[in-house]
Design a protein around this nucleic acid. Structure first.
Length: 734
DNA sequence: GGGAAATTTTTTTTT
DNA sequence: AAAATTTCCC
């Protein structure tokens, strides 16, 4: 028997060996989901059921795609090339380049970044005289994205799916936006899927081609598919002969955390209806975490309704371990200190930093931990965050490259035409647009014409002329010099690097470094077009992943990863579960937040440390924070509640010490933050609103007077701490 | 048109 | 508190 099969448990083997017919694998966290997918992929190839290019394998993230590629290669013992393996978007981009003309594009179409999209929408809205104070471009962008997520081209948006925007004009604006995209030969992210799905459903010949080609389909993280992705998959999988519907979807309804991006948990729940006779395999043996971690996670997720129902059981018999720690702290700074100390402790015990992660709910939380880790000299890496290719200097440089690659890329040209300053402001650019539209030519042509017509001031005219000649020259140099040399020359000659060299701001040096890094990255690609495609779809650089560093990232970014020791800070009402999730999606939102908590806990192999702070700084002000309801939902037998430094802080509260000078701590009713405190702490019961003018007392700020009331939030002028915004349930009448 | 100054917003999660 | 955006003035 093949060696790679013997390393699987019976459930996993069933999932790998059931190659024919539809298969749904419900794989709990840490049950070897990736191993099953990759082994299955390899098994299909090794058993000669299909050639490598006859298997379609879809993932959600580039990280997952990369990992799958590597693991398949390692089982096969050779590089896995020519595979249709990638994210939905990457695969669709590849397909769309083959059939671009069917939706009115050419195969070298540009993939827009979000800046470009916004700029385009703003232009359209301005032309339509829409009040952008009341109806923001962001709102419209969101609506368009949601439509695209559901596979709705403008003509398919029905009244029922319309949104309240600018007196019902959203659909029309959407149609215009799509027209403009076509005119500049561009597709946004959503279009990649939307266009391909549209092609597949209107062109049976094209679809039949793909049916012939893809004999096996593998889908990772199926619970996160949105409607258009679902339609795309269904079109490709629903072959005429039901016996040939070889689609295998792997997912976990308990880890569905992307509904805000249009993911429909329904997709996984109705798999059996879409594919009658589907086999369902459950993977429930967890090989990752200790018994208390699994117990805590299970207790939490059990609070959700409408689950497909899986029970994780420890797959290892040595899975005993420490209980999950729940630590209560005074404020977010103390929380960061606690995490830092524990990491130092672990470091002293020779734990690898790369096996430690801090997982936060929102990106903004990373900062406090970064500062602490820097102070302590602990190396760390922030995963995700502000991405390299989203930095403005990188996007500018990319825009230069895009114009070289495709002169008709209006959006790129517009971005850099006055960057560095060339004396071309709003008026000039608007005139350029006007001219271009009238003649049906790209902006670059319009710019040439404007130089001839003399509609510009001398200075602007000259510098624009230089830029245009520059582009012609750089483009001509491309074949002989290569894209790296041309890119470097271009950034020099256009004055772009000079602009940053002369910039006195502290970030300027870093930006110049980033530009060098960009040139280095560019060198790793054979062609300029290849590089641009990569950046548009991958958006990240994979640098020094091997170094021994603590990982710092959002819970979303952590999905699919695992660490020995995981910190889960900020478990407070409003932050986690996040207020916006509750406000916008109610119970559904709460359940998704709970799944996110479940994802967080199950990332840990050995030790999970959950914490919450009683006070947290929001924007510039301190606010009180109630412990998250999720803390109550953790089963007591798997949890150790610790007071953290709260106890010692309380003892000092009688003497003005820790916060002396900042906030004189008036200890009228010292609140002990320690084990058990969350049981006493009230939820924000809707009773407390205070009248304006009421004198109040607050634990952290002392005495003050209510100046304004906004629902549950009060603006209070404190006697010592100044004006703060606090939640009404955290002050009492004085 | 460009820069400085004043004002407003920011913090949900991402391919 | 910092960043982004708008307004103001030359």
């Amino acid at each position: 028997m093949s060696d790679y099969l013997t390393r699987l448990n019976p459930e996993q083997r069933a999932a790998v060996e059931t190659v024919d017919g539809p298969l749904l694998v419900l794989a709990g966290a840490g049950t070897g989901k990736t191993r099953v997918l990759t082994t299955r992929f390899a098994h299909i190839l090794m058993s000669r059921r299909a050639f490598p290019n006859q298997v379609l394998a879809v993932t959600f993230t580039n990280k997952a795609a990369k990992e799958m590629r590597e693991r398949v290669a390692s089982i096969l013992g050779q590089p896995a090339e020519g595979l249709w393996l990638g994210t939905f978007h990457a695969l669709c981009a590849r397909m769309l380049r083959r059939h671009a003309e069917l939706v009115g594009l050419t195969s070298n179409f540009t993939i827009l970044d979000t800046d470009d999209q916004m700029r385009l929408l703003k232009q359209i809205m301005a032309a339509e005289n829409i009040d952008t104070k009341r109806w923001t471009p962001q709102n419209l962008m969101g609506a368009i994205q949601r439509w695209k997520d559901r596979g709705l081209t403008p003509d398919r948006v029905t009244d029922a799916e319309d949104v309240d925007f600018a007196n019902g004009r959203a659909r029309g604006l959407y149609a215009q936006y799509q027209e403009r995209l076509k005119a500049v030969n561009a597709a946004d992210f959503g279009d990649l899927l939307l266009h391909v799905t549209e092609i597949l459903r209107t062109r049976p010949d094209v679809l039949a081609n793909y049916h012939r080609m893809f004999r096996y389909i593998l889908v990772d993280e199926y619970q996160d598919t949105n409607t258009v992705q679902y339609l795309w998959l269904r079109l490709l999988a629903q072959r005429e002969n039901p016996a040939e519907r070889n689609i295998c979807c792997v997912g976990d309804d308990d880890q569905s955390i992307y509904s805000w991006r249009g993911a429909e948990i329904e997709n996984i729940l109705r798999f059996e209806k879409d594919f009658p006779g589907a086999t369902i395999v459950r993977l429930e043996a967890n090989y990752r975490s200790t018994r208390p971690i699994l117990g805590a996670a299970a207790g939490l997720i059990a609070q959700n309704n409408g689950r497909l129902g899986k029970t994780l059981r420890p797959g290892r018999n040595d899975a005993e371990g420490d209980p999950v720690s729940v630590i209560s702290l005074w404020d977010s700074e103390e929380e960061a200190r606690m995490v830092g100390e524990r990491i130092e402790q672990a470091q002293r015990r020779r734990h690898k930093l790369s096996e430690i992660a801090i997982l936060v709910r929102t990106g903004s939380q990373t900062r406090a931990f970064e500062e602490r880790l820097i102070t302590l000299g602990i190396p760390y890496r922030v995963v995700g965050g502000q991405k390299f290719y989203e930095r403005s200097e990188i996007r500018d440089a990319m825009a230069y490259l895009r114009v070289v690659n495709q002169p008709a890329d209006d959006l790129a040209f517009e971005r850099i035409v006055n960057q560095p300053k060339r004396g071309l402001g709003d008026t000039a650019i608007r005139a350029m647009h006007e001219l271009g539209r009238r003649e049906g030519k790209p902006l670059v042509s319009a710019a040439w014409r404007m130089i001839e017509t003399g509609a510009l001031r001398a200075k602007a005219k000259q510098s624009l002329h230089e830029l245009l000649e520059g582009f012609a020259r750089w483009r001509a140099q491309l074949p002989a010099e290569g894209h790296v040399v041309v890119a470097a020359t271009m950034l020099e000659e256009s004055g772009y690097t000079d602009m940053w060299k002369q910039d006195k701001s502290p970030e300027a040096a870093g930006r110049l470094e980033n530009l060098k890094e960009l040139l280095r990255a560019l060198g790793e690609f054979e062609t300029l077009a290849g590089f641009l495609e990569h950046v548009a779809l991958v958006m990240e650089t994979d640098e020094n992943a091997e170094a021994d560093r603590v990982s710092l990232m959002t819970l979303h970014a952590a999905k699919g990863l695992e660490f020995d020791m995981v910190f889960l800070p900020g478990w407070e009402e409003g932050l986690f579960p996040h207020q916006r999730a509750l406000d916008e999606s109610g119970d559904k939102g709460l359940e998704e937040e709970r799944r996110l908590a479940y994802v967080g806990i199950t990332r840990a192999r050995q030790k999970a440390i959950i914490s919450h702070a009683a006070n947290r700084r929001i924007y510039a002000n301190w606010s009180s924070a109630v412990p998250s309801r999720f803390l109550d939902e953790l089963p007591e037998e798997h949890v150790l509640r610790e007071g953290g430094a709260g106890a010692h802080r309380t003892r000092m509260a009688n003497q003005p010490s820790a916060f002396a000078g900042q906030f004189p701590l008036v200890s009228r009713k010292p609140r002990v933050i320690e084990a058990g405190a969350w049981e006493v702490a009230q939820r924000p019961a809707r009773t407390a609103s205070m009248p304006v003018g009421q004198r109040v007392f607050h634990q952290k700020f002392g005495y003050g007077r209510v100046m304004a009331v906004d629902d549950s939030k009060l603006d209070v002028e404190f006697e010592h701490a100044g004006r703060k915004r606090v939640i009404d349930t955290f002050v009492e009448k004085a």
